[in-house]
Design a protein around this nucleic acid. Structure first.
Lengths: 112, 112
DNA sequence: CCTACGTTTCAAGCATGGTCGAAGCAATTC
DNA sequence: GAATTGCTTCGACCATGCTTGAAACGTAGG
């Protein structure tokens, strides 16, 4: 049996100094204070929207908008639990974000 | 003698789920195809503007605008050499970018 | 069923950032 | 010092993305 795994192209294979199709989109999704905060909160596990809501001073529909951006970027996934919707960090979110940076990481990595 | 080193705050010390003052600004600077390409090219050493120019199909003044954004973000530094201006990656650019991400890096780091 | 709750979608403002054309400035060459 | 080269700045346009208010949706409970 053969496993077919899809690997993302964060750079143009022909010219590595050109960003791949998703690299910039991924960074744009993170380059917003609200979405940054949501991702940071999701780093420690799933949260429902109302929980995220309670930590951000914005309207519900606006939060929903930003969550959609993160969803479209594939950085988070959702699951419904009764009335509530839980948001979880996509399993490959960290890896994809690192790979989206235009600079190779320093040796040994960094712990922010 | 005491050395005073300035460490950047990529997160709000009071609430780590809030971005620090420069984290989002840094990511915004990278979240553009042209600037992404410039940084990727600078990763292998200094380049003068005319060299960068020859790899990007945009007007000179527009390139200058994007270089200014990178300069203002502190990701690159310049030095004049005769008529030419050389752009170099700031020594802490990699570290600051990694620290600006809202997610802690995966164990062992990633080589993009 | 009808209501309440949690969340999303829609359509319309508004602000911001990227783009373009023209002019400006610094350093070299003639 | 006049002209040229390399790069930057300025002002105005335009597209995009964030924000807002109102409405719609699915689910649970009275």
């Amino acid at each position: 049996m053969v496993e077919a795994i899809q690997i993302e192209v964060s750079r143009d294979p022909a010219d590595p100094t050109l960003p791949g199709p998703t690299a910039v989109a991924l960074l744009q999704a993170v380059a917003d204070p609200i979405r940054w905060g949501v991702l940071a909160r999701l780093a420690d596990g799933p949260h429902c929207v109302c929980d995220l809501q309670s930590h951000v001073p914005i309207a519900a529909n606006l939060l929903s908008y930003h969550l959609r951006v993160l969803r479209d970027a594939g950085l988070v996934v959702t699951s419904r639990r009764g009335r509530w919707v839980d948001y979880t960090l996509a399993p490959d979110a960290r890896m994809r974000l690192c790979a989206a940076l235009p600079l190779p990481l320093p040796e040994g990595g960094i712990r922010p």
